[in-house]
Write a protein that binds this DNA or RNA. Structure first.
Lengths: 147, 147
DNA sequence: CCTGGACTTGACGTCAGCGTGAAGGTTTAC
DNA sequence: GTAAACCTTCACGCTGACGTCAAGTCCAGG
């Protein structure tokens, strides 16, 4: 099923600009017709779907290359090759690290917010009434031990 | 304790370029001496430390502005103002969303890897017909992993 | 006086993944 | 026959937070 760039873009839910960009990177080269138009087939559509799927997982374009090469080499799936599996594994490690970082940060920001809200409640008596029965009075510094 | 840009950069563990950048943004304006040199004091160091701390948490520079303004307004801490608390809360929501996304992606990539490893193990000994390896998700919505 | 280090402004480069136009050629539909 | 719709190649723009020159200024030590 030969098609031109616009048709492939539609079928893959992307844009012609994106396809030209992939070609610039050598990721998805196109054959040309006599008039210079790019022409693609169903195989290219599969390659492109592979790329887009991986991108949705947050893979960079360079990281999709082993999968694309694997498919082009005739393998049944983009992840049928060891190089692709390595990318999966590296990405998993990266994701785990990233998630751990974000969770640590979330905890820190959360505690900063909690502290700052407490201090605001303590410093501004006119606003929300103290939740704690022994909340500090506004003008005198008084330490209230948590009961 | 008046100091010039190099000294402030050293004390904050950053670079002069960064400080000039902050000034361009109006985030950390500097006084000038007669010869045109930037001059800073300990208050500026505190502002800068506030910025760097928030940056370590993944806040964008614009998001640090309320904190800096708050400190400059004379408040005891950068997060003593409602605007800063709002930034905290928005960032928490953003972090939660991002963490959830990454966890979902981690699970998907993990299962893809497991499946691909199984298929590789199955394909080497014998030759059972491969399933359709990739069922691309219907929507193409993308976002960056870490801020 | 001269050298070297710290300082100044200005402006372009980096990374990723395209978006957005300009200026023009080709094909298709009516 | 002509206008719409498609295609082509440049080539700059965008986001963020700076890095990296380049060319010139200022000041202290020897």
């Amino acid at each position: 099923m030969a098609m031109r760039i616009g048709e492939l873009a539609r079928q893959a839910g992307t844009t012609t600009r994106t396809l030209r960009h992939y070609e610039e990177l050598g990721l998805l080269p196109a054959r040309r017709t006599g008039n210079g138009y790019r022409t693609y087939d169903d195989g290219d559509l599969r390659l492109l779907q592979q790329i887009r799927t991986l991108q949705d997982f947050g893979f960079g374009l360079e990281e999709t290359r082993p999968f694309v090469d694997c498919l082009r080499a005739g393998h049944p799936a983009g992840d049928s090759c060891p190089a692709s599996l390595d990318v999966y594994r590296r990405k998993l490690a990266e994701l785990d690290e990233c998630i751990a970082d974000l969770q640590r940060i979330r905890a820190e920001v959360g505690s900063q917010l909690a502290r700052a809200e407490l201090e605001a409640a303590a410093d501004v008596p006119g606003g929300p009434p103290p939740l704690c029965a022994f909340a500090p009075p506004p003008e005198h510094e008084r330490e209230t031990g948590t009961p």
